[in-house]
Design a protein around this nucleic acid. Structure first.
Lengths: 183, 183
DNA sequence: AGCTAAAGTTGACCATCCGTCATGGAACTG
DNA sequence: CAGTTCCATGACGGATGGTCAACTTTAGCT
């Protein structure tokens, strides 16, 4: 025995992780839709009933998996925003990290649900506004618009192929100056 | 017999509609996730096997239902854009119709998938750009960003409550001038 | 009309899935 | 070490998904 924790809790953590790992693999191999709770259980040394001691459904696992991933990715996603001295820097950092992140995650979970980063972005926006980087604005609405737009643009980028740097520049300009012609 | 169509085809259309109608009701009552193919069949005078002559899965029905709805809504969604004389008018018309539409559809299908209107918007944007309403731009990327942002902002609007007119003005301004302070 | 081939519907069927629960054994308590 | 709590196990009842042989109806032809 080499654990600092009581055995009960250690096993509990381990089992939970068994399920999450199994689910990650199953989702990656078959896709979320085709996967079944039984498949997840089979990818695990556990019995059927045990699964339901930890999660209530496939969707439940999905959420936990997404939260786990979002947690791991959060710092990377927020990279460069806190230090941004201008609105342009801020936006550029934002789009750039979203595009980079979406491009690589072929994890099977059809990608991270960016909305997990909503609060972070909102907070960073408010913070930046207070530093005078942005004019005062509705940080919630802007964060929502930015995330949704970035997500969809990233999807297009991944599908049609295209240069991430170029897309970052275009997206930054769009949100910086709107659809007006560049002066 | 009073049909202009051969009986075979008439029944085929009818059965297809039986399924779509049943599915719409079932989705509205139980939600898409909880609904089962069997539930749909039960909401229909048809037998189990027949279902699979028309659709291959619940998801397949969902798509058909969504397409049906998108078709019906398309004209309303595009309202006012073709006549817009300025970028501001165009954007305002766009956001206004999206917000109005999303606010009312409590159809059960958790709302229309706006991406169905993507091509329309893209075409309208290119058209407007050629009329000089917009500067030349990547209509595809802009359409994607606009739709995604509008969709998410509409969701927030519905959730938190809020004035649609106000939101329309804010969204229009955001995409018209970007995050710069209003002059 | 009468008859045949094609088209399409039916509902029972099998494999599988879901979620539960009584049983049993391992870990904590004192 | 005995008592208690906690939890994993795996079989079970009920339901689902998708298939398919048998049957019914329509379209086409003579």
């Amino acid at each position: 025995m080499d654990a600092a924790l009581p055995k009960r809790q250690r096993i509990k953590q381990q089992n939970r992780q068994f399920i999450l790992d199994g689910a990650r693999k199953v989702f990656a191999e078959q896709g979320y839709g085709a996967a079944t709770v039984r498949d997840i259980i089979r990818a695990t040394p556990l019995a059927a009933g045990t699964f339901y001691n930890y999660f209530t459904s496939k969707e439940d696992v999905r959420e936990a998996l997404n939260a786990e991933m979002a947690d791991a990715l959060r710092p990377r996603l927020a990279e460069g925003r806190a230090e941004a001295a201008t609105a342009e820097e801020f936006l550029s950092a934002f789009f750039s990290s979203v595009f980079a992140l979406k491009a690589e995650t072929g994890t099977g979970l059809e990608a991270v649900d960016l909305r997990a980063g909503f609060e972070d972005l909102r907070a960073d926006l408010e913070n930046a506004a207070q530093r005078g980087v942005f004019p005062p604005l509705d940080a919630g609405a802007l964060a929502a618009a930015l995330l949704a737009a970035a997500d969809e643009m990233a999807r297009r980028l991944a599908r049609d192929g295209g240069d991430a740097a170029e897309a970052t520049a275009a997206a930054t300009l769009l949100f910086l100056r709107g659809v007006q012609p560049p002066l």
